[in-house]
Design a protein around this nucleic acid. Sequence first.
DNA 1: AAGCCTTCTGTAACACTGTTACACCAGCGG
DNA 2: CCGCTGGTGTAACAGTGTTACAGAAGGCTT
Lengths: 215, 215
Amino acid sequence: MTQEAANRTPRPRAPAVSRRAVLDAAARLVEEQGVAGLSMRKLAAELGVAVTSIYWHVGNREALLDELVQEMVHGLDTLPAAGADPVARVLSLAAGLRRVLREHPHLIGLVNERGLTPAMFLPSQRALAAEVSAAGLTGAQAAEAVRAVQYHVIGFVVVERRTDRSPEQRPSAEELWSAEPGADPALARELATPVDLDRLFAVSTGALVRALLGG
Amino acid sequence: MTQEAANRTPRPRAPAVSRRAVLDAAARLVEEQGVAGLSMRKLAAELGVAVTSIYWHVGNREALLDELVQEMVHGLDTLPAAGADPVARVLSLAAGLRRVLREHPHLIGLVNERGLTPAMFLPSQRALAAEVSAAGLTGAQAAEAVRAVQYHVIGFVVVERRTDRSPEQRPSAEELWSAEPGADPALARELATPVDLDRLFAVSTGALVRALLGG
DNA sequence: AAGCCTTCTGTAACACTGTTACACCAGCGG
DNA sequence: CCGCTGGTGTAACAGTGTTACAGAAGGCTT
């Protein structure tokens, strides 16, 4: 009986912090310093309060993160699908999904650790399902197409996010490929170039969707 | 001067632990309990030695993990490509890459945090490049195909690994889709079914590769 | 043989983490 | 006035990575 009790009575004495304030401060900390940067003591200090107050309001760290994730997931809007044909519409959904995921870098990991992945991706899954149906696919084949696109996008974002975060890759792909030309020098030269993630996403997702939808 | 000095002289007094023993014990701990389960004190206790000895031999935790990852990466064999046509050969490479990644669950995260991704994936990238060239692609288009396949496979494995690890998903996809049939009941029924990851991988990768290679 | 120098180990501490047992204070209802 | 409930604070426990420092033991030079 922590938060429920607090909400029932209109507080006897003005509390130093509210559950809302704790959640907001925690969200800010996570956004600034990542999940590892969220410590109960830092949070308490930030709010000018003792640690035990935090615990009283939110239970413990795990519950706090649970709540944060719940709120973030509910804050995600349903994506609009734009375009004339189903392929274009699915691609716009994929691009939108990628954009949303990139805007919430810490979210994917948190969501999966908490077993909320299906809930989080249900809106996009529903939107994808509608477009896949419109493209003429049904049953198992349609389900596979939906999931294939989802896995592809989520996986891509996870990988590209890591590419972003990582500092200078020590033996960089550039050096490695410059050292070993291989059969096709033009290919080696290209692979020695930094990745254009936007383009790579467009190309790979386009290829996948067209193949799946038979466009 | 920790490890280098130790290797120069044939040890004056028989040391209680060797750098090798530390690395092996650490690898075992990581394999059993994950990266978070590797603590310097646990490691020392396991070896019947004080913590400072660990630090003397490997520097610190970060350097220890660095070394572990280096060894694991070097232990990865080059994948063989099997099949008649380029599409089949690329697919066999993709399947092999997935298999290897699944066998080392902790590796991907560690590698990326340490900026070793290009070094780790160079062998598979080279193999993919050869097959893509054999399929007739050149230059930028070939490079995009190589990278698209790589991102797809790595992303898929990351996502499916999380699916595995996560405990019971709280509002499971099954419940969610049973509650909301949508337009195509057969599709909803399929999406309410647990994912067959092997099949999904085969379907999505097959579609992607065929589209990229024009097969 | 004496002394030093390098290698390696141990003790004990610092600062940090999540968490909790416990005391306390203030306002409300009886 | 008394006690109950809501909310806060102090201080501790166990755990983490890391390090300053004290040693011990063998090889080297003098």
